[in-house]
Amino acid sequence: MHERLRIHHGVGSRVLFDSDKGNVPFTYAQEGSGWKFTVQTAKTPEIDEVLRLKDEVNVFIFREKNGVAIEKVWFYTGDGAVDYSDEEAALVIVASRQIAYHPGDFEP
């Protein structure tokens, strides 16, 4: 199963970051009651835009099979933090809540 990190603007869903573009390495793991993402990337203009909109981003893990998302996990970052760590040369995201869903969920 391929996992892909995507960060969208919460107002209109504009894609701000996609780990598949440039094969950007990232890790995420449960930390306490939340989740911590570490994205190994330079502080590019794309990352600057994520930081500018940090209070209203949607963070997703897309779980894909044959290029198709079969599950999406959305993470709530509203009371967490989205910051760039110069020390780690990484975008660091802390999320407090997640909801997993499938593209066909809640259809009529």
């Binding site: 919460g10 209203e56 709530y76 869903y101 066909g104 969920d105 259809e107």
Partner: peptide
């Protein structure tokens, strides 16, 4: 008719 937006999240709005 019968069209629309699939599953998507919202927060803090």
């Amino acid at each position: 008719p019968q069209k629309g937006f699939g599953a998507h999240p919202h927060s803090d709005m």
